[in-house]
Nucleic acid binder design. Structure first.
Lengths: 145, 145
DNA sequence: TCTATTTATATCGTTTGCGATACAAAATTA
DNA sequence: TAATTTTGTATCGCAAACGATATAAATAGA
C-alpha cells in the first residue's frame, strides 16, 4: 500500500470532512428558519451588497450559475428575495432581498458566535485562526482558475 | 452590516471553497478512470484494508450509510468491488475489491503527487502542512459527535 | 423463551454541485 | 449593417449528502 494513498495523509479528505462537519453544525440553527447553508452564504453576499446580478453572486461564492440559479429560485419561492430583469443589460437577472431577507440578519444574529464557539479548540484559537485563514486563502487562490 | 456576517471572516466558507476546488483538481485525473472523488475515497479505505462491512467504510469516511450505500452500488456496477452477505452477521454487507479495484491503485499511482503539487504555495509547504493537518484534525475531532 | 431494543443496511425525498448544452441579448468584427 | 462571437442565465442529467423512515437480523431483558 503506497504511503500517498493513506487516508491520514490526505489534505483533501480533511478539508472535505471539516467542511461537511462544520456545515452540519450550522444545520439546526439555519433549518429553524427554513434555510440551508448555501442559502445562508447567498444571504451574506446580499447583506454585504444588495441588488446584484446572478453572476456576481456566483463569482463571489466561486460557484457556477447552474448551481446558483436554482438555489436563488428556491429562495424566491420562500419570499427571501426577488428576481428582476436588469435595466442596463437585459440578459442579467438582478437579485434583491425582500424585507424578510433583510430581517433574517437579525434573526440569525447569534449564529456566527454559536458556531464559532463550537470550533474553538487546542490548535484553533483567536491566535492561530489568521494563520489558518492564510493557508486556506492561499490554497483557494492557487486552485482558482 | 455585522462584522460576523462578512464572507471574508468565515472559516466554514473557506473550508467549503477549498474543499470544492481541491476536489475539482482531482476530477480530470479520476474521471479518466470513470471515478468520482468520493469513490476514490472508498478505494483508499479498501486499499488500506479490504473486505470491510459498509458501516466500517462509512465510519472511516465519517459519512452516513445512506450516502455510502448507493455509492458502493454504483462502484459494484462498474465492477470495482463486490457486495456479499456477512457470514458471522447476516445483516452486514461485506465490500471486497475486485481485481479491477485492486489494479486501480497502480493506474492512479501518480494522482497524489499531481494534485499535491497543485496545492503547494507560499504558506502551504512541507514545513507548514503538519500544522494545517493538526488544526483540521482538531476541528474535525471537536465536531465529531 | 418471548418480547423489546438495538444494530446494519437500505429506501425515499430534497438540495447541492457541476459538466454539458441551449438560448437570447450584447458586443465585436467584417 | 450583417454576420460572428461572447456573455448571462437557464435547463438537463447524474452523483453526492443527509434527514427521516423502513426492515430484517442480532442482542438484551423480562
Amino acid at each position: 500500500m503506497k504511503e500517498q494513498f493513506k487516508l491520514d495523509n490526505q489534505l483533501c479528505f480533511r478539508l472535505y470532512t471539516a467542511s461537511r462537519l462544520l456545515t452540519q453544525a450550522y444545520h439546526p440553527l439555519l433549518s429553524e428558519h427554513g434555510l440551508t447553508y448555501p442559502q445562508y452564504l447567498v444571504l451574506m453576499v446580499l447583506w454585504e451588497k444588495d441588488a446584484q446580478p446572478v453572476n456576481d453572486i456566483a463569482k463571489r461564492l466561486m460557484l457556477e450559475t447552474n448551481t446558483v440559479t436554482p438555489l436563488l429560485k428556491r429562495m424566491e419561492l420562500q419570499g427571501i428575495l426577488t428576481r428582476s430583469k436588469g435595466s442596463a443589460d437585459a440578459r442579467q437577472v438582478i437579485i434583491t432581498l425582500t424585507e424578510k431577507g433583510q430581517n433574517l440578519q437579525n434573526l440569525l444574529a447569534d449564529v456566527p458566535m454559536k458556531v464559532g464557539s463550537a470550533v474553538i479548540c487546542k490548535s484553533v484559537t483567536s491566535d492561530t485562526v489568521p494563520a489558518l485563514f492564510g493557508m486556506l486563502d492561499d490554497i483557494i487562490a492557487k486552485l482558482d482558475n
